[in-house]
Simulated scan of single mutants.
Amino acid sequence: MPAETEPHTCTWMAWPSSGYADGDEARRAWASVALAVAEFEPVRLVVDPSAIRDATDWLGDAVEYFQAPLDDAWMRDIGPTFVVGPDGLGAVDWVFNGWGGQSWATWEKDARIARRVAEWAGATIIGSEMVNEGGGIHVDGRGTVLVTETVQRDPGRNPGWTRGRVEGELRRTLGVREVVWLPRGLTRDYEEFGTRGHVDIVATFPAPGTVLLHVQPDPGHPDHLVTAEIRAALPDDWKIIDLPAPEGVEDGNGPVDHSYVNHLVCNAGVVACTFDDPRDDQALEILAAAYPGRRVVGVDARAIFALGGGIHCITQQEPAIPGGES
């Protein structure tokens, strides 16, 4: 699996249809992300047939449309994880079961999306028996993957799976050699609409051996201790770049998990979460320094986080094949 910083053919997204995300607030956020990504690379949007008119009203000809039935719109998790090999583009089709069989989730339609996207992309499908989501992994493109104990070994996902079995499947599907286990994700991610610990909200690789780490400076926030625990689990020889959380620490439902780590790296750019927060500018500056030569664009992600994720969660990059079309 190439690093997200390597060239992309496009980014895949899905449109939030009626019944999943009613009202304009979510649609405006999804559309803003799609338009921001489209400044850097093509966007391919999967749309439920019932919502195609709605999607085109928001996005016009800025994206390419693909129709398929959808339960929700978290493309990072319902779509395939793209890999490359001697035969070209591959796509890992993880088992998807609604983030560990959450009581509120439906996934009969979503469980078919990875294969549909793989077929549209012309990728070779790589099947897997492991329940996993794209938000539950981050790779450096040089053989290392970050995961969390509470996702891949979640009893609701893969009951009875040992570390060794998970690592063997990650090596087979992603081509990695080293699996770095983090103890858990952010506190809010374990509440009703969470994923139980996705890594893409706490840590990511801007370069091999370097990690952008979500840091909660407020000692009164439960993630203050969580992020310290995560830092302690990272290899001692890695460079760690702190990416402080926004100053706003609560909403109407308690402590938030707003995170600048949940960004998408594009061709020549970075599309980053903002929160109308005093720390937004500082975060964009840190990201610009971490990704030299790329233009950083901020998009208000509060409406996306209100539904349980961020910009990285609603996007999935398709890597360019060396020597092929891009």
Results as ranks from 00 to 15, higher is better:
E178W: 01
Q152W: 12
L170M: 11
E169C: 00
R184M: 09
R153G: 02
T187L: 05
G156H: 04
E191M: 11
V166Y: 07
G168C: 09
R157P: 10
L170P: 01
G175C: 07
R157A: 05
E191D: 14
E149S: 02
E178P: 00
T187R: 07
W161S: 03
E178I: 01
T148L: 07
W181H: 00
R165L: 14
R165Y: 09
E169R: 14
V147M: 03
T187K: 01
G164R: 14
R188W: 06
P155L: 06
L174F: 07
R172M: 04
E191R: 15
Q152E: 09
D189S: 03
R188P: 11
Q152F: 13
L174E: 12
R172S: 10
D189T: 11
G194M: 02
R153Y: 06
E149I: 02
V179I: 09
R153W: 10
L170T: 09
V147Y: 05
V176R: 00
D189A: 01
L182I: 04
V147I: 12
R153N: 00
T148Q: 10
V147W: 06
G185I: 10
W161I: 02
E178S: 14
T187N: 07
N158Y: 09
L186Q: 10
V151T: 15
R177M: 04
F193V: 05
T148G: 13
E149R: 12
G168Q: 14
L182F: 04
R153L: 14
R188E: 08
P183I: 09
T173R: 13
R163H: 05
R157G: 10
G164P: 03
Y190F: 15
V166S: 08
W181R: 05
G160F: 08
R188I: 07
R157S: 12
V176S: 07
R153A: 08
G160S: 13
